[in-house]
């Protein structure tokens, strides 16, 4: 009997011990602190999609400004700007991270919206973070270099940058101020005077020489046939020469436009590479990943 009771007691201890152990493991794994630690690990490893999911689970059980801010930051990184704005608006007032949240809000507008909307946002001081006002002015000037409006004078433009940044940006400012575009009218007029000259002006030397030879040979054939009293052939070659002469003028204007498109493309590509290297002058936060 005592052995049976001893056995029952032993079994009771084992069963309760197991149940207790499982409950503790389950609680620890999905506790708020564990979730935050895991989400921060994912965030710092730049796995933003899963980090957002984990931070959202954290927010279901507790209010956490840092988690909310990280969600907004991660959504910006994933180019989901509208969602980022919605998440960050909750931190604008009565939060320790309100200035940083407003900066991230402007960041989502900088990357997500066009120049005019971004300019309007800055002009009307909507949710402007005073601590980062100089940063936002720099980003506005970045956008000035990427759109088609005329640039302000250099003293106004560089007033927001420090001396090192000014030195680096001077090259892009001059490229934007004097891009070296070709004028379509000039190209067309040059080709009207000398067939192919407009294409050579637009950096299409081979096409220019071909145009000149084409028009020249047809004109020569027309003149030659008229001189030898072959009027029908003369008029055919005259018509062809006039046709290709007109086509050459048209093509020269189009070649100038294609040249300008190439200039614009290469400038934007180089400038965006430069800005990516500087994080577009947005500051890095030292509290995010330690």
């Amino acid at each position: 009997m005592s052995r049976i009771k001893l056995l029952q007691f032993f079994l009771f201890l084992v069963a309760t011990g197991n149940i207790y152990a499982q409950r503790t493991a389950a609680d620890d794994l999905f506790s708020v602190n564990n979730r935050i630690a895991f989400a921060e690990y994912l965030f710092c490893a730049e796995d933003y999609l899963r980090a957002v999911v984990e931070f959202r689970e954290v927010l279901k059980s507790s209010a956490n400004d840092t988690a909310r801010f990280r969600i907004g930051y991660a959504l910006n990184k994933m180019n989901r700007y509208r969602e980022a704005e919605d998440n960050l608006k909750g931190l604008f007032f009565s939060s320790q991270l309100s200035e940083e949240a407003r900066l991230e809000f402007y960041k989502s507008n900088y990357f997500g919206k066009d120049f005019i909307d971004y300019g309007d946002l800055l002009e009307y001081n909507n949710y402007l973070p005073e601590k980062y006002h100089s940063v936002l002015l720099k980003t506005y000037h970045n956008k000035l270099l990427l759109q088609s409006r005329s640039l302000p004078d250099s003293s106004t433009f560089f007033s927001v940058y420090n001396s090192d940044e000014k030195e680096e940006l001077l090259k892009f400012y001059m490229m934007k101020k004097r891009p070296g575009y070709k004028n379509e009218t000039t190209a067309a007029l040059l080709s009207a005077v000398l067939p192919g000259a407009g294409k050579v002006y637009s950096n299409e030397t081979g096409d220019g020489i071909t145009s000149f030879l084409f028009t020249g040979i047809l004109t020569f054939l027309a003149v030659n046939n008229f001189q030898n009293d072959h009027k029908i052939r003369g008029w055919i070659f005259t018509g062809l020469a006039a046709y290709f002469y007109a086509g050459n003028i048209y093509g020269s204007a189009a070649a100038a436009q294609n040249f300008n498109a190439g200039i614009k493309f290469n400038f934007e590509k180089e400038f965006i590479l430069f800005l990516d290297g500087k994080n577009h002058f947005f500051p890095e936060y030292n509290f995010l990943c330690k």
């Binding site: 071909t210 145009s211 084409f214 046709y243 290709f244 086509g247 050459n248 093509g251």
Partner: peptide, 12 residues
Amino acid sequence: LMFADRFVRDTN
């Protein structure tokens, strides 16, 4: 006109 220009570029 576009075709004339294209034709000349083709023979380049």
